[in-house]
């Protein structure tokens, strides 16, 4: 044994009190622990699957997931592309943010739109939010995954978002039709993920499953992660419909004769398609103010999204059909 080694081992046979002190000084905060786990998951998928892709929704959760992915492979670039499902009804600022972000970090971006749906002019006004979401989001996503031949797709869903997500696994298996069977998921123990696929199967992977909305915001704050400006309060043109403030992002939003857009100081808690995403009145223009508002409002974040209230257990239904 070299002298150097014997010193190391003698310092390690210190008494229990010292061991405890050493453990406390080497404590990882919950955010760093969540970060380490998410990076582990992302690397594991990159190593075990042939053709992964990361779904990028441009929202805050996606921004955190993209940061974690960059950390996982630093100093190398991402070994997989990012995929954005463009319904053509996203906020303009989201698209600008997306393009800037991917260019800055040399990320391979794939943008997919359901062309048949686009031709048929499927939109949230004439066809209702259910049909529109099915065609322009769910079907579009399944098309893109199929045409890319991806065997693993990362998503930024969190288990605290909705009750049905509480039981979702990190590796969520989909049959060849992209459907989820909540009764037939594999048990997940420790950090040992079973990535063996049967022909035609694919998985959705949720590396930030264990993060809560507060964790996501705290991490964005700690890491100074850029997010779409729509999260911050600003004067924006809105109309009020059934108690929900809808932003007039472009001229395609049909206005009733008595509807006149008003400039209001508003911001968004979640981002999606602008006609389906409610704004909230707010004066929060900094991250700490946003977090304060979130904590004090104490409202489920998805209550701002119209698609969840259609019927009881609605998210679970959508998920079985392939929606994230």
């Amino acid at each position: 044994m070299t002298p150097e080694l014997s010193t190391t081992s003698s310092s390690r046979t210190a008494n229990a009190g010292d061991m405890a002190d050493a453990a406390v000084s080497r404590r990882l905060s919950h955010l760093r622990q969540l970060e380490a786990e998410s990076i582990h998951i992302i690397r594991e998928v990159a190593a075990e699957f042939d053709n992964p892709v990361m779904l990028y929704s441009i929202g805050k959760d996606s921004s955190v997931m993209a940061r974690l992915a960059r950390k996982a492979f630093y100093p190398a670039k991402l070994p997989f592309p990012m995929l954005h499902i463009d319904t053509t009804w996203k906020f303009k600022e989201m698209i600008e943010f997306r393009d800037r972000f991917c260019a800055e970090h040399d990320i391979d971006l794939i943008v997919h739109t359901n062309q048949e749906g686009k031709k048929a002019n499927i939109n949230p006004f004439d066809h209702g939010s259910n049909k529109y979401t099915d065609v322009m989001k769910t079907q579009a996503l399944l098309q893109a995954l199929k045409s890319g031949g991806y065997d693993a797709a990362f998503g930024g869903a969190r288990r605290d978002e909705e009750k049905s997500r509480a039981k979702e696994r990190i590796y969520s298996f989909r049959n060849r039709f992209g459907q989820w069977d909540p009764k037939n998921q594999r048990p997940e123990l420790w950090n040992l993920y079973n990535g063996q696929l049967t022909r035609g199967e694919s998985i959705r992977v949720f590396p930030i499953s264990n993060w809560t909305e507060l964790d996501v915001w705290l991490y964005i704050h700690l890491e100074k992660i850029p997010i779409v400006p729509l999260y911050f309060a600003k004067k924006r043109p809105v109309v009020e419909r059934e108690g929900i403030l809808v932003m007039v992002d472009d001229e395609r939003l049909p206005l009733a004769p008595d509807e006149v857009p008003k400039e209001e100081l508003v911001r968004f808690r979640t981002l999606g398609c602008y006609p389906l995403t409610g704004a909230q009145k707010s004066a929060a223009t900094t991250l700490p103010e946003i977090i304060r508002e979130m904590l004090l409002t104490n409202h489920s974040e998805r209550s701002g999204r119209l698609i969840d209230h259609d019927e009881d257990g609605s998210m679970e239904k959508k998920k079985r059909e392939g929606y994230f």
Binding site: H30, K163, S164, A166, P182, Q185, P187, T212, L214, D215
Partner: peptide
Amino acid sequence: FTDGLVAEREQGITIDVAYRYFSTVKRKFI
């Protein structure tokens, strides 16, 4: 607050592992 999927809710028993989150100033709990 903790009963999960529709089928389970109907049966009145949880039949799988579900994860819940809460936190205090000292710790985050899973």
